[in-house]
Amino acid sequence: MTNDLFADFLHADAQGLRVDAKRAATALVNSVSTQDDKIAWTLANLERLQTNGASRIRHEIYEGIVFPALKARFECGDPEASYQLGRTWQNFISKPCFTEELGWYSAEDFYRIAYQKEPGSLRYERALLERLLEKLAYLFHEWPAGILIDHRQWRDEIISLREDIDFASSIDRSSDHAEALSEWAIMTDQYRDRLDKRDGSS
């Protein structure tokens, strides 16, 4: 029954049949009622769900099945739940109720937790590296005007930034991003010197 409902949803969603997709998603959620069933369904099917233009999976399914399952496994220390919470982060921040239940985490936080629990996982490592690179590219995109940090506590921010760059370099095993990471490290040092000079503490 549940498999049939999921197949109905996937078909309607793929065809862009919004009314039918909503009806099928609601029926699917209602059919997966127990916590154990939600966990089993999520483990089996989450990665089959397509994301929309906002990088979110269907909200009824996330709210009714996926989030309760991932929350339960995350609170048990499951690294896969941490990884999947990072992967569905746009859903996680879409409603205050999710962060109120679990606490505030960034996608990077979820990926870092997964990686720390299972550092041998290339999936977790790649996800964390990609997120770090996205963040760093954004922070440096106004260079040479500056780096997008909190200037009220710039010394701590610079230290944290260098730690992120060094860590990203350590997990960039193929060295595909070595040039960018090296440039960001140099920019960080230059910006630290610039701010030191500005504050008269050099």
Rank of each mutant, 00 (worst) to 15 (best):
L28F: 00
L28N: 07
Y62C: 11
G64Q: 06
R23N: 15
T99D: 11
S55P: 00
I171L: 00
E130K: 12
F140P: 05
S174C: 10
A81Q: 10
A24P: 00
P68I: 03
L128Q: 00
T42Q: 06
L85D: 11
S94F: 05
L5V: 01
I39T: 10
M187C: 13
L70E: 11
R56S: 09
G53H: 06
L17S: 14
V29C: 10
G103S: 02
D4Q: 14
L85T: 06
W154C: 07
Y191F: 14
S169P: 00
T26S: 13
K117W: 09
W154M: 10
E80S: 06
Q90W: 09
D199S: 09
A81S: 07
F74H: 04
P96R: 02
R23Q: 15
A185H: 11
A7Q: 13
E47T: 14
A7C: 07
R192P: 03
D109V: 05
F67E: 12
V32S: 04
L132E: 15
I57V: 15
T2W: 00
Q15K: 15
V66G: 01
D199C: 09
A54C: 01
K71M: 09
G64Y: 04
G16Y: 10
E142S: 06
R18V: 14
Y138M: 01
S31N: 02
A180K: 12
S82F: 00
P79Q: 13
S201G: 03
L70F: 02
T88Q: 12
